[in-house]
Design a protein around this nucleic acid. Structure first.
Lengths: 330, 330
DNA sequence: TTGTAGGCGTTATCAA
DNA sequence: TTGATAACGCCTACAA
């Protein structure tokens, strides 16, 4: 390996002081054109790269952002996070940041990790996913003045931190309209148990679209935990009623796959899932796809803005619209 | 935020020199019990944590390892990497390392990233996934003396670097035996186009197991690109022969899902996939599951051993056996 | 067993 | 516009 070039090496090579080299890098406008050109040539010639640890010691900034990688869900999920992480890493890289992963068993463990990451590595910021009602993590970070952004709205709390989210209601509404356009009049919704947050939001999109079409959603919504078996069970329950639904909109692909089983893959009883997972692709399930790369890009945008202390007038929240991926059942 | 405690603060608080604090941390045996206890109490009281940047400047080690996150596959795949990354992060953390992500469009771009990561951040090591035939990345890393480990054997090259892999042939062999035990005698294999590596290995497991049972595999193997549609196509092709197969073993879940479509989900024509993806769970596909958490743990084990320069007699390669996840078709 | 001195590579401050 | 000096927090060598 070649000897590492330092700012001193470069300075000597270009016959200037170390400080001038530093200025070329961090405040180019202070340096005369001719000098700058000479220094840049030396940097190129020596293959110099600023040492991040030394820079960090001086500036207190690591150019590292952290994101949690969750224990991948057992079944249908997964790959959603994959895509988000990939987008995050790519955008962060072009913004000059690297992405550090961490895991945590629960919120308390996560806060302990914050403390370590901040104290030892001087992390510049955090991206939080799957925020939930009464999330103590956001409170801790805000309290300690740590830059962060969440992928997910702060449901039910008045907290005003930057966030990026996908309009779930718009997604289920699009799915519902798709079914209405195909002539369906009895459109059911399979959801998660009620509670403020993602589940209620997605249900609302179905509900208001059905109502707007002059139809009555009463008795057409059942809820269950997020498993395929539960989805099949509640779909069968609805199908066994005197006036059964002819189509299903679901809060997740898990429940949707269950519904597809319940309908026996019948093309006349279409099902629409949410998240466009691999399972949806496998069985030809129409599903709502979140724009995860855009969401990741938005997170980095907002986060770097906070890190750089830019309290400009730009919006601190981004709500993205998902897209319906239409497939034929197989 | 509380004032950051440094080694100097702690020294003052415990009425010792900075060096003694450093010794307590890095060479505890040099310090008298009573002194050590006092210093540790001060560390606790002040919430001191060693600053990683300063330590790194002195030692040249970042306690950071890098792993690439790939553009998630379009369809069936994904989540495989998710699980691996989670395991990697968790194990690395207990070994005192943090995991940094990076992306790269191709091998050349990846090597450029190595250069940046090494020069700027002084990364301690790399975990490479999806190595391929004639991989230039491993050559570059070896040449530059950078510690690395691959998840995947160095197919077709004699390179001797540490690696962890999953015995694909054992997986397809287990699947084939499962079908033999159920009485099947015409067991087909749907594979990827021939070439040294993962695909050939998985095919070999099927081939040798069929032969060992005294059966003839001739004409029962077709290959195609890794898509559901291609899987369906070649499965139909085999089913249309005079003496069609009664069961399928597949190199991937993608091809397996296609085969399931071709058989019309018939329980009498079972299909076995590979990777136990979300798609397999969705349609009740029996599939070979890789022990990804163990693989990740093995990677960290081997990598830290290289980083620490422990050239002990312990094996530098780990081959793990996958497990058949048996499901009823739905 | 404990303390002192020096330096890792960078940037901020200030003087020339 | 450029350069000298100090400091960030830690660890290694060496001295006491």
């Amino acid at each position: 390996m070649v000897d590492k070039a330092t700012i001193t090496t470069v300075a000597r090579h270009a016959s200037v002081s170390r400080q001038t080299v530093s200025n070329v890098l961090n405040a180019p406008h202070l340096v005369r054109d001719e000098t700058r050109a000479r220094v840049l040539a030396s940097i190129e010639a020596l293959g110099y790269r600023a040492n991040q640890a030394a820079r960090q010691m001086r500036t207190g900034r690591s150019r590292l952002i952290a994101v949690r990688i969750e224990r991948a869900y057992d079944g249908i999920h997964g790959s959603v996070l994959d895509l988000f992480l990939h987008g995050l890493t790519e955008t962060a890289s072009t913004a000059g940041y690297r992405t550090v992963l961490y895991t945590a068993a629960d919120d308390a463990g996560e806060i302990a990790t914050y403390e370590d990451l901040l104290a030892s590595y001087e992390l510049d910021g955090f991206v939080l996913t799957s925020t939930h009602h009464g999330d103590v993590r956001t409170a801790w970070l805000a309290e300690h003045g740590v830059p962060f952004v969440t992928f997910g709205r702060p449901w039910g709390s008045a907290a005003t931190h930057p966030w990026v989210d996908v309009d779930g209601a718009a997604g289920t509404a699009a799915g519902t309209r798709h079914l209405l356009a195909a002539g369906h009049r009895r459109i059911a919704f399979l959801g998660w148990p009620e509670g403020p947050g993602v589940g209620d939001d997605r249900r609302a999109g179905w509900h208001r679209t059905v109502r707007a079409a002059g139809l009555d959603p009463a008795g057409l919504c059942l809820t269950a935990p997020d498993t395929v078996d539960d989805g099949e069970r509640i779909a069968r329950e609805l199908l066994a009623t005197p006036d059964p639904p002819t189509a299903f909109v679901c809060v997740s692909d898990s429940l949707a796959v269950g519904a597809v089983r319940a309908t026996g893959h019948s093309p006349t009883r279409p099902v629409i899932g949410f998240d466009d997972t691999a399972a949806a692709a496998a069985i030809g399930l129409t599903s709502v796809r979140q724009p995860l790369a855009e969401a990741a890009g938005g997170c980095i945008d907002l986060l770097t803005r906070v890190i750089d202390g830019k309290r400009d007038g730009l919006p601190q929240q981004i709500l993205l619209t998902p897209r319906l991926v239409i497939r034929d059942p197989r």
